[in-house]
Structure formats: C-alpha cells, structure tokens
Amino acid sequence: MAEPAKRQPPSVAPLAGLRVLAPLARYALRVDLAVAAAAAAAAAAAGAGAGIMPLATAVCRASQLRDWHALWLGPDEQLLLGPAAAGAAFAAAVGNALQGVPHSLVDVSHRQGALEVSGPAAATLLNAACPLDLGLAATPVGFCSRTVFGKAEIVLWRRAEHAFQLEVWRSFLPYVHGLLTLAAAE
C-alpha cells in the first residue's frame, strides 16, 4: 500500500484582509431544537458526552462551546464547526448525546471552505455583492445566516465588528474570492 493520500483543500491567492482558513470539521445537524437541547442536557447530566454539543438557540446567531461553534441556519438546522482533527470523535459524541432523538448528522467538512474577510472596510467590501444590511444594529457580532454573495450562496458569520467568516461551497470559492478581490482592488 502506498502512502495515504494527502488533503488538498481548495486554495486561492491570499490578499490583505482576505484569506482562506485552514480545514475545519463541519457537520450539518438537523433536529428539533427543543428536543435536542433537552437530550443534550440529559446526556450531560448523566455524564455522557458532557457538554460536547453546542446548540445555537437564538435565530441567526452562533454559539460556542469550547472548540466548537454552532451556527443557527434554520429552525431545525445547525452548522457545527470545530477543529478538523476532532471531527470523528465529536460526531460520535453528538450521536451518543442524541441517541433516541430523531435527527440527521451529516459530515460536510469537505463540502465547503472558509474565507475570512477582515479589516475596517470588511462590511463595505462584502456589500459589493451581499445584499444584507451589515450595520451592527441589523447584523451584530455573532450574526450568522445563509445569504447570497453575487451569484453564489454563502453562510455569513460575523465573528467581530470588522471580521466575517464566509462558508462557501468549494466549487463556488474561486468565484467568491475573485469577486472579493476585484471589489477590493479599488
């Protein structure tokens, strides 16, 4: 048997205030939120999978539990993001915590890549192709949602006033990056 294959995450040229983040573990979790929260609490109380699963309960807001972030994408949909190396163990623990709870946990680590757009002009730059109001009143820190960027769908996550993470399906990444680069050129 030859060497195991090496990972080749999507890559694009870096630019000031715009970079591709290192690979992440990502899971699409679909579950009735209230049921899941109760199950997670019960599992934590029983000492199993204690405090492993973050759940974002506020609409269009992210929540964090240690290394893992949960992004509220829909009333029964969470995008869970964490360290790439910890993915399999995390998935198993979530599976345990949700034993008996109807749900769907799907590994989407490789489906998308992450772009970070940062700097004082980040919001202005994103508004070149994203129609959301990126004022802090409408989209405060912690805001997350699927939206559009030009002709691509993205998940937009405001991690700080001047820093956004864009989750982009991998084949759309060069397009989103190219549009950001052109818009940033001025």
């Binding site: 679909r30 029964d76 109807p102 769907s104 590994d107 989407v108 680590s109 489906r111 991998r170």
Partner: peptide, 10 residues
Amino acid sequence: KVWLTSTTEQ
C-alpha cells in the same frame, strides 16, 4: 422525521 442535506461537494 427525515432531513435532506446536499453532499454534492462533500
């Protein structure tokens, strides 16, 4: 009780 997730690019 069923959910759909696109994994085309996964």
